[in-house]
Design a protein around this nucleic acid. Sequence first.
DNA 1: CTTGAATATTTCAAGCTTGAAATAAAAGCG
DNA 2: CGCTTTTATTTCAAGCTTGAAATATTCAAG
Lengths: 155, 155
Amino acid sequence: MIGRAQAEAQDLSKDRLRLWLRLLKLTSGIEAGLRRNLREAHDTTLPRFDVMAALARHPEGLRMSELSSYLRVSNGNVTGIVDRLTEEGLALRMAVPGDRRAQTARLTARGREVFDRLAADHEGWVDAALGALDGAEIATMTRLVKQAMAREGQE
Amino acid sequence: MIGRAQAEAQDLSKDRLRLWLRLLKLTSGIEAGLRRNLREAHDTTLPRFDVMAALARHPEGLRMSELSSYLRVSNGNVTGIVDRLTEEGLALRMAVPGDRRAQTARLTARGREVFDRLAADHEGWVDAALGALDGAEIATMTRLVKQAMAREGQE
DNA sequence: CTTGAATATTTCAAGCTTGAAATAAAAGCG
DNA sequence: CGCTTTTATTTCAAGCTTGAAATATTCAAG
């Protein structure tokens, strides 16, 4: 037989699992909507948007490795995305003086213009997707998400 | 100039955007951990696990189209994943009597055994990932996620 | 200097994902 | 019955993603 403490821990574990599945469904659903909107309204993709957003926050440019750790994706991944943004004339690579191994990626002038339009729409889509939550609810959820990340994100 | 109501709506929009970014970071982080654990501990992937979980809940089998709408992924996607599960001897396709277009996918006996082990570990990993939230916090967050989905998910 | 370890990035194979096109079969209908 | 439309699935090209291997360069000893 199992004690009361174990039974409660098992229930809590099940509740955490159910929350996880719902959370995943919510974020996947919103993400799918964002991907669809980006494609239909701007003929682009979420990974390209993410890279452009990172570069927009760092006008001085980011090294490829900084970009990949900032976005938490692999090095090889950003290589390909920056390649495509460069082909499209939205980003460019610059040599780093004093280290011939490294490159910094930056947005071009056109990249900045394009990103500004993307970002405005993006904020609107997210606002609509979370529109069922009012200010207090957003604040509560933000607090709980931060708390959950304190454990999860410290690896 | 803009009125107070507009200014508040803009602030709320920014707060929703910040919450979205945190939420995405939390779920992506947990998901990355699950993918790593599945690979390292069981040499498998999250999409395979998701398909096996769906099939485990439906021992009578699911049509390919039911599987894809259940998992909210494209038809072509499940075709490939079921192909690989079949190659590994974990799933199989069966003809549907009376409709030669359709197929149902099912877990094999070995597929069920493998899934049971995966599921146990999976629940433990999720429990650990959300371990910073106690029962009341899980309940609050679950309520808010449901509320957010009521709007988002009704498409 | 030169050898070896560490660092920055790219390349690569494999798998996931999508939307669109292609196949195939069933259903409706004149 | 023939013909069209709908439904079920697969195929395909393109892009994303990863971890591992390959390149290139820098750094640290000796």
